[in-house]
Write a protein that binds this DNA or RNA. Structure first.
Lengths: 273, 273
DNA sequence: CGCCGTGTGAAAAGGCTGTGAAACGCGTCT
DNA sequence: AGACGCGTTTCACAGCCTTTTCACACGGCG
């Protein structure tokens, strides 16, 4: 996510000036990028910030709004580390917060160093379980996706993706092999709930496909799952499917052997049927 | 990993009997599988236990051994959730533990419910970040049902189920062994009340049967209960019941032996009588 | 034997997606 | 201010896939 390795991008939602001051100093010293938000921020804004973690005092948002926020934000941004941090919390509150999606809950007063260690632990937990180096440029098929550039490339040439196009591609590529529902895609890219009948996802998929194919024909990346959504999976385009009437069994087509994950996944796609 | 969904497998390394007793009671109540280890256990033994999480009091292992253990085990089993839990810890100790690889650090005395909530949070985060790692792709008979793909497979080959077909199969398979009434099936798949005389469920059961049998003949999965509904139960097809004139006694037919649960249930079904 | 519930095949209806283009919002340049 | 370029959103329509409906055959059950 972040440019440098070891540098994290964090947002802090709190009004506790003393806490903010002390924590801010430490964050500066560590060289982390951070931003303080006085109160709640629009969800799509938080999505756009590409955060690694979020430190939030639920009580700063109001008695009920805090819980709603935890619930909503954890659903909207899976992968974001959420550390709740409040004064005078009860066991029941902490349990509720953790169950709603918080990854950790620290009781104030607390040492900023410990808060940072817990942020690191939460973020590390996420990265560690992704064997693929997540911080490096993601390379799939002929595509190279650089999050530090907000751009994708093929053979070093830029695809000229717009911001939304890039974010859509990023979301899809990070969940490569997995089928994502339209609603979830919309929620994670646009940051709010999709209205019924909204075709934005479809339209952007089309634009993405066009730009990708222009630079990397010979590969199919985004597959449609009828009635569900889309799946990102780079695979060479199947030439046998083209209208060549002559039986081409001589040239061994890439028959997906059982047990081969790529092969399995390939057959799910709509165009296979 | 674990047999049932929602069930976690945990090991606790501690000597604090009071803590162990209280926590154990809660773990039992929640139905989690857990094991208490008095002291350190060989690393390979821990690996073999296929744990979701590990609760450990570093001080129970000795002044220095605790740190070494955290370091070693977190490196050895990335993906394992590690919750440290000790009395009278200092900020420096907690920071050190978290940096060494612990995912969370709870200070005793603590409420077992909070410990469990924190375990859940740690495991949840690990799972969410590795979607492809099967969080339980429900395997029954020769069938493999993957909800992250909205598809079912036999020997790695997709059944090409449509969305409704998949949802029907999922509902049935999750209630494997018990008979579901048409009304309930309809309500859970379609989301609203079934109109009188609606044959949709029947039609989709037929489609499902066709697609399943095409890929997995030799097994019966969906059984009809006259006047009631359907029951999902994978069982080898009974060749003796077939009116096949050619004597196939050479190939040993899988006779459902008495005492076998699947066999017993089988006799309830319509076609058996 | 007759009734009712279920299996089956196919036609009809409905919904979903691909696609091109127009409309809109926004910031920049002249 | 107005024109312009750019990116995003909305719209309409065609084509295809899915779902629903229907008619009929079959089989259990009283």
């Amino acid at each position: 996510m972040s440019a440098r390795r070891g540098t994290l991008r964090v947002a802090v939602i709190d009004r506790d000036t003393a806490f903010l001051k002390v924590l801010g100093k430490r964050l500066d010293a560590a060289g982390w990028e951070y931003r303080v938000l006085p109160g709640g921020a629009p969800a799509d804004e938080l999505v756009a910030m590409k955060l690694n973690a979020l430190v939030v005092d639920p009580t700063a948002l109001g008695p009920e709004e805090g819980w709603e926020f935890l619930d909503r934000i954890s659903g909207l941004m899976p992968g974001l580390g959420i550390i709740a941090c409040s004064t005078n919390s009860t066991v029941a509150q902490r349990v509720r917060g953790l169950r709603l999606g918080a990854d950790d809950w620290v009781s104030k007063p607390c040492h900023p160093e410990e808060v940072m260690a817990r942020i690191e632990a939460v973020v590390r937990r996420r990265r560690r379980s992704r064997p693929e180096a997540e911080q490096g440029p993601l390379v799939v098929g002929e595509l190279e996706i650089r999050d530090d550039q907000f751009q994708a490339y093929v053979a070093g040439r830029t695809l000229d993706l717009t911001r939304r196009e890039f974010e859509l591609l990023e979301i899809l590529a990070e969940a490569a092999g997995q089928v994502l529902e339209r609603d979830e895609i919309y929620r994670r890219v646009w940051g709010y709930e999709m209205a019924h009948g909204d075709r934005s996802v479809d339209v952007f998929v089309r634009k993405l496909r066009a730009k990708i194919q222009k630079h990397s024909p010979g590969w199919d990346y985004i597959h449609t799952h009828f009635g569900i959504g889309y799946r990102f999976d780079p695979e060479p385009v199947d030439r046998t499917a083209m209208g060549a009437p002559e039986a081409p069994e001589a040239l061994s087509e890439p028959e997906p052997e059982p047990g081969d994950l790529a092969g399995e996944l390939a057959e799910i796609s709509t165009e296979t049927s």
